[in-house]
Design a protein around this nucleic acid. Structure first.
Length: 456
RNA sequence: GUGAUUGUAGCUCAGUUGGUUAGAGCGUCGGAUUGUGGUUCCGAAGGUCGCGGGUUCGAGCCCCGUCUUUCACCCCA
């Protein structure tokens, strides 16, 4: 018999991992709901026509495609096979697994445009798939938690995203993070300012790597991408933002890029966004205005966000931004939206590495009831029902096994309390409650077990 | 997609220049204890050495392919 294996880049999540993951999901969901976002789920698979072309060429390549059902090769000709995989794909596959949650959301909005209250705020927590090569913090199947608003271009939405990120991080117990913010309009303005208007794409790709490969290599890459020495010289101010405060950064950007109306607009947007966030009561902001922050997804047009955990070498744990025309691709132009996406799997990796999960995260069974014989069940079963009725997770050991075995079971499941019920307990009505951490045990009347366990 | 890297018991790892029957610790299961665990002692189970092919009298060890792991690039949560 062959040993079973998992597909590359996928994982099982055992009970212990799931408890921690649910802690993350619950924390994020609470915040999303508190900010007025409504839940949405969409299918795992979408038509390829919905997905293709939304994430750039690279993204198209990373889409998992689903082979057509039935005789998918039936009508293929020799010429089709010769034409290469790119031409062949649409003939044998018309569906794919979703790559993110934003594009399916845009599709949903367009299909339901007449029934949605605008602005429409939705959150969505589902897996996405990318045919990437797995690495640390990078999986082929992973969960995203998205919150998006469409139907308004108010910067209040950006401000609320900043508030939500701070709230989520703090509720998770991740105190040490950095929220990097930039604006695509500033990137466009930089391209203008150095005499390469419209070239913010290649520019972004290079300068985004600044903190990773350093200034010199960024400049080398720009030269390779056809940027002149003159342009590179004009870019010099970009490298002077390192330790500037938020306010100083904005001032410096405004004066450096004063010739570009686009850039001025970007700076003004950031300014107003921060102002609104402050007005809403944001304290101890962990914001870093970073003009080198780019982000790959091609549909962003305004603010862009990225969250990194400090002191861990895992990529960004959250990212997002404003997109002005995502629904345009589905025949509904002019609908602006802005959103944020939390990467649960990376958040998990960071919290696990830094030991940030609170002790007893998602504690399972609280009380194990151990009847020694069939008579004892007459006491055990009413008791377990009684505990469950007051929301104390409890279970009865199902077999009449040796006590040692049943206590081992409690240890294995880290159950803090065991109620032992033998003939003596049945007769007196005083049950033996054992604290599995301290080893202490005492007699307690059945009616008082719940409140005893509750106290701690 | 490009270039490296890894794989031996459930887990972490030994395994000599290629040489009989592949080992240890931890864990699991049973017992010492017919109403008391996390300590101790005794015992047992568990491996076609990732998979397929090749070289050799002989392969866990050498060669090729493949899958998997990890890492860099690309890109990204």
């Amino acid at each position: 018999m062959q040993k079973p294996t998992l597909p590359k880049g996928t994982r099982d999540f055992g009970p212990e991992q799931m408890r921690k993951r649910l802690f993350i999901f619950d924390t994020i969901r609470q915040t999303f709901q508190r900010f007025g976002f409504q839940p949405l789920e969409t299918p795992s698979m979408e038509n390829l026509s919905t997905l293709m072309g939304k994430y750039g060429d690279e993204g198209d390549q990373l889409l998992f495609k689903i082979l057509n059902s039935g005789d998918f090769a039936g009508s293929l000709t020799e010429a089709d096979l010769q034409a290469g995989s790119k031409k062949l794909t649409p003939k044998i596959s018309e569906k794919g697994l979703r790559y993110d949650l934003t594009v399916p959301f845009a599709r949903y909005v367009v299909m339901n445009r007449n029934n949605l209250p605008m602005p429409f705020k939705r959150y969505q927590m589902q897996p996405v798939w990318r045919a990437d090569r797995p690495q640390r913090g990078r999986y082929r199947e992973f969960y995203q938690c998205d919150a998006d608003v469409v139907g308004t271009d108010s910067l209040l939405c950006e401000a609320e995203i900043i508030l939500m990120i701070h709230e989520v991080m703090r509720n998770l117990g991740m105190q040490h993070f950095t929220l990097k913010i930039n604006n695509r309009k500033i990137l466009a303005g930089i391209a203008e300012a150095i005499g390469m208007p419209g070239q913010e794409g290649p520019l972004s790709v290079a300068i985004d790597k600044l903190d990773k490969i350093g200034k010199d290599k960024v400049l080398d890459e720009l030269r390779e991408r056809g940027f002149s020495e003159e342009a590179i010289t004009k870019l010099e101010p970009l490298f002077g933002f390192d330790n500037a405060s938020t306010a100083d950064t904005l001032t410096m950007l405004a004066s450096w890029l004063d010739a570009s109306t686009t850039a001025q607009q970007g700076v003004a947007e950031l300014q107003e966004t921060l102002q609104l966030a402050t007005m809403a009561g944001l304290e101890n902001a962990q914001i870093d205005i970073d003009p080198t922050l780019a982000r790959g997804l091609s549909y962003y047009t305004g603010a862009i966000f990225e969250v990194k955990a400090n002191g861990v070498s895992i990529g960004s744990i959250s990212g997002g931004g404003r997109y002005d025309n995502l629904t345009g691709a589905f025949g509904m132009p002019g609908l602006s939206g802005v959103g944020i996406s939390f990467g649960v799997d990376r958040i998990y990796d960071v919290m696990d590495e830094l030991n940030l999960f609170p002790a007893g995260t998602g504690q399972g069974t609280q009380v194990l009831i151990v009847p020694f014989d069939a008579d004892a069940r007459g006491v055990a079963l009413p008791l377990v029902t009684q505990l469950r009725a007051v929301a104390i997770p409890a279970e009865v050991y199902p077999d009449l096994a040796k006590v040692k075995k049943m206590l081992d079971y409690a240890n294995a499941k880290q159950i803090p309390y065991v109620v032992l019920i033998g003939s003596e307990e049945v007769q007196t009505g005083q049950l033996t409650v054992k604290n599995m951490v301290t080893g202490e045990q005492q007699k307690i009347a059945q009616a008082d077990v719940a409140s005893f366990v509750r106290q701690r």
